[in-house]
Write a protein that binds this DNA or RNA. Structure first.
Lengths: 218, 218
DNA sequence: CTCATTGCGTACTGTACGGTACAGTACGGA
DNA sequence: TCCGTACTGTACCGTACAGTACGCAATGAG
């Protein structure tokens, strides 16, 4: 039924069940072997023919783009309810957000897709970089900023520029974890304790941007 | 004169002038086209024969490794003198360090090599990732930590774990800049003001780890 | 039953590139 | 002048892989 996919429009929803199976196979292969996967391998893994792959996705780049788009559309980070809350539960929201974020970033799929996008940028081919940026970092930013502004409205936080505040939050949460995982540092993987790191980051964030003196550096 | 290169040992020093020219050509090509460069292109750019490339560097991977090693051995970040100093000049040292670091990280070569190493990690081939880590992030850490400890000894800073302090410093300085450049974000390039970012980062670092009340969040 | 559509499997083509072989050249030393 | 060494340039081989062609089976409509 479903026809060739127009990647430009985000009509990822129009994917048939069978097509999603194919993309799942492609994603698996990307996680396993990065950009070195072959169309033959995808066809064989998905029990479909290459001709079908080309009919549905146009070419290798199209398959890759569809795979990344589709995966990106699935990732949803824990999203706290926007109810009025006291400072303690607000902080807990931030911690949970950061924790969930760290878990996603250190997950196999995120690592694989980020590596893939980075490689493609090096070769100046395709638009995977912007897709990953848009659905990853920028999507996070757009969800976190309102949360930060909510904290400011509630007088828990104090900052002028929410973009600056977000970038600082990013730095405190992620630090060198992402680049180290992308570069294959084995030590970092075992060292990630998402909950603990998230709590520390939020604490430090409140030292920098909190209004309460509870967080003054001791 | 010079013979085949033993990459394992860091005898990069044993490179002849001609070999360095070849590596320069290879590095240029890596910056231009990433991992997509070909041995033919290197030979042609360096005006040498492919046979020479293979004799000197073994295979493509060897050439790549030598190129990365050699470039890494060249990068030296501004390194303040370790004289006794007052807090203001100590802070200025940190700022200069951070500024220089940001400039390196946002430079073409650093971006190209990091992208290259990240791609290779995805394909589980080679050891470029660990080379880049070792000569990049880890080298920085090993230089910065003594500087931080110096600040602690002088009672400007207060922290227990210098590794934690370093990672926090990393986060505050680099933030999302590196991942965004690696993913090809164009906006970030023009937005980097190394001096300003470095000052802000150091200021925030002192709010978190400084002893002086001058840096208490206002 | 017939015919059309869809998609699987396989075999094929074209090409790009890593790696090798070899002929020819420049040069330095005896 | 001869020889050895080190290098260049080019032609070539083998392979891997993107993309295509086609035969075949299943399904479903009329």
């Amino acid at each position: 039924m479903s026809q060739s996919i127009t990647i430009e429009n985000q009509i990822i929803e129009s994917l048939s069940v069978r097509q999603r199976e194919v993309l799942t196979a492609a994603l698996d292969l990307v996680v396993e072997m990065g950009d070195a996967f072959t169309m033959n391998a995808v066809a064989s893994r998905a029990n479909c023919s290459k001709e079908t792959l080309y009919k549905w996705f146009g070419d290798r780049e199209g398959l890759l783009t569809a795979t990344v788009q589709w995966q990106a559309s699935k990732v949803k980070i824990a999203w706290p309810d926007k109810q009025v809350m006291d400072q303690a539960s607000y902080i807990e929201s931030l911690v949970r957000f950061a924790e969930s974020w760290l878990q996603v970033l250190s997950g196999k799929i995120s690592i694989a897709l980020n590596r893939l996008a980075v490689s493609h940028e090096a070769a100046a081919k395709g638009l995977l970089g912007s897709i990953v940026l848009k659905n990853g970092l920028f999507a996070i930013a757009e969800r976190l900023k309102p949360l930060l502004e909510m904290g400011r409205d509630a007088n828990f936080l104090k900052f002028n520029n929410s973009d600056e505040a977000f970038r600082c939050f990013f730095g405190l949460v992620v630090r060198d974890m992402q680049i180290r995982t992308l570069l294959g540092d084995e030590k970092i993987k075992s060292a990630v304790d998402a909950r603990k790191d998230a709590k520390r980051a939020v604490e430090q964030f409140f030292v920098l941007y909190g209004t309460s003196t509870d967080f003054q550096r001791k």
